[in-house]
Design a protein around this nucleic acid. Sequence first.
DNA 1: CTCAAATACTTGGATACCCAACTATTGAAG
DNA 2: CTTCAATAGTTGGGTATCCAAGTATTTGAG
Lengths: 171, 171
Amino acid sequence: MTSMSSRAPLPFDPVEEARRHWAGHGWADAAEGMAAVTSLMRAQAIVLARVEAVLRPLGLTFARYEVLMLLLFSGRGSLPLSRIGERLQVHPASVTNAVDRLEATGLVERTPHPTDRRTTLAALTPAGRELATKATEALNAEVFARPGLPADDVRTLVDVLATMRRGAGDF
Amino acid sequence: MTSMSSRAPLPFDPVEEARRHWAGHGWADAAEGMAAVTSLMRAQAIVLARVEAVLRPLGLTFARYEVLMLLLFSGRGSLPLSRIGERLQVHPASVTNAVDRLEATGLVERTPHPTDRRTTLAALTPAGRELATKATEALNAEVFARPGLPADDVRTLVDVLATMRRGAGDF
DNA sequence: CTCAAATACTTGGATACCCAACTATTGAAG
DNA sequence: CTTCAATAGTTGGGTATCCAAGTATTTGAG
């Protein structure tokens, strides 16, 4: 899932380094895309590590935090597992797993769908609602409010990634 | 590790949606950072899925592909496991795991370090070298050459992410 | 020189995620 | 209506990643 303890910085940008190698191997036309993909992976790992470090003391992982927030923002605090998977872009089996654990710690409850007996709803418990709020306040203070980038760059990043996601059929 | 089969697009941008909720809960000051983090996670998942889909038929995962490429670009095609972990930003245990599997499929060999007996080197085999090249050509053609973004945006993305990574101590 | 601290790697335990396969329901075609 | 395809969830199997702890070796302090 995450983290990385906190290694020492490299003396050079590994993405730049890889780009040079790509060019040297006659792959120059793909070098820029490779750089984008590699940057994305590394940046995601770094951010995920920061997020998980904040959530760990609260007994949460990012995956479970996302489920909690989705429920918190849903009208009645409950959703079919299938909707959760769609929204979070994860496999149904991953939802089963996350809800299992949230249920085991009393943050969520499974309840039957009123009309469709195939469907199971995940419903926030009061403890789940409270923890979701507390976790968000911690994340806001320690990560989201300090993205490690100037505000302009943050907006640019969000916009470019939105373009990419739209093109990939995320929404 | 990855993928997602290929769900139907959502009828709205979930990141935008979350931003509205953040504002509505009095967390407006952290909304932009939240959007950046969430976008990054989703975009990474999408790209990783594309990459893994290309590598799967070759019997590789992205983690192992990265190890192979690192070795390919190193002078003699061999590196201490510790260097691999530093470069790829992963825990030593993850390197052990990846090298175990690469070794089991004959793509890499463990050899003792000539002077430091604590250290183990991972060395590319001819098969490993060949597969690394073939996998790169597949990735170049199917992913890196079509990042799903205009060239300008790709460059912007790489630059912004480099700024973020530098600030986070990636290099 | 000796011994404690640092470094390198592995192992065991845990979480997350995917896929394939399977059960249960619902829905739609005939 | 009956039947078969589609939908919802779960289970079992596999990979990746992390952390904590343990072994081996090297390095540095005194």
